[in-house]
């Protein structure tokens, strides 16, 4: 070749040009697609919230089927009647509460500062459901989800998701066989807000006992299972003052 690719100057110039070209390409791709991506993420949140309260397209016993993305905005409007932001003692309606960054806000509250905790009220067949967003730690990375409760604090449904749990083990937290077990459990034990413990020890694999505040753990995923337990407990602690007022009303 005519160019001497071993020269230092050439190396530096090549590196500089490469960085500019690659940087510009990535910036262009990211900014031109950011609108689509944000929209997809918004739809996903709506799908997850609806899924937790039992609005989904599940047609068999093994697969998670959300409301299709092209209908979700409409269904979300129909079923989610109220979106609230709880800030200390102040409760305000806010139609974009579902877009709040749950991790950031929950961390603020846990540190004792004022944070905005979103809560969604859904209505289906004349019944009211209270849906709480959750956020916690799994084995490798973040886990999060939604839990929906009725006015007796009984779990109607949950949805979990994760960023990077082990495929085939912890990543199964978003599978039906695990999530379906939560339905019917109660977060109360007597008059105490007990939460639900994801419990190792296979004494109730079919999860027929619904009064023990326990759900059978994920096989081979102890840390993820404990993470889910802690996430549920932490969320219920955060929302306890509000949940008490609902319980008192009914």
């Amino acid at each position: 070749m005519a160019i001497n690719t071993d020269k230092n100057l050439y190396t530096v110039v090549f590196a500089a040009i490469m960085v500019i070209v690659v940087g510009a390409t990535l910036a262009f791709v990211a900014s031109s697609l950011s609108g689509n991506i944000a929209e997809n993420q918004r739809f996903e949140k709506q799908q997850n919230i609806l899924y937790a309260m039992g609005i989904n397209d599940n047609d068999d016993e093994s697969n998670v089927n959300f409301i299709p993305t092209n209908q979700v905005a409409e269904q979300f409007k129909k079923y989610i009647t109220e979106q609230l932001v709880i800030e200390g003692d102040k409760i305000t309606p806010d139609s974009s509460a579902y877009l709040l960054n749950v991790k950031k806000q929950q961390d603020l509250v846990k540190e004792g500062k004022s944070g905005k905790l979103p809560l969604f009220i859904g209505e289906k067949d004349g019944k009211k459901y209270y849906i709480l967003p959750m956020y916690g730690k799994g084995l490798w990375d973040a886990i999060w989800g939604y839990i929906s409760l009725d006015d007796q604090m009984k779990v109607v449904g949950v949805y979990f998701d994760h960023k990077g749990e082990t495929a085939g083990l912890g990543a199964n937290l978003n599978q039906r066989y695990f999530m379906d077990d939560f339905a019917g459990e109660n977060i109360m034990k007597g008059s105490k807000f007990e939460g639900i413990t994801v419990f190792k020890g296979n004494n109730d694999p079919l999860n027929e006992r619904k009064d023990d505040n326990r759900v059978d753990a994920l096989a081979g995923a102890t840390i993820t299972s404990n993470g889910i337990t802690n996430m549920i407990h932490a969320t219920i602690r955060l929302y306890q003052p509000y949940l008490e007022t609902i319980k008192a009303k009914n």
């Binding site: 070749m1 160019i3 690719t5 071993d6 050439y10 190396t11 090549f14 590196a15 960085v19 690659v22």
Partner: peptide
């Protein structure tokens, strides 16, 4: 392949995969 400086070829390869 003919314009990559051999001294930084591994870095160039990494950048290509990453991008």
């Amino acid at each position: 392949r003919n314009i990559i400086p051999s001294k930084i070829r591994i870095i160039v390869q990494l950048v290509v995969v990453a991008a």
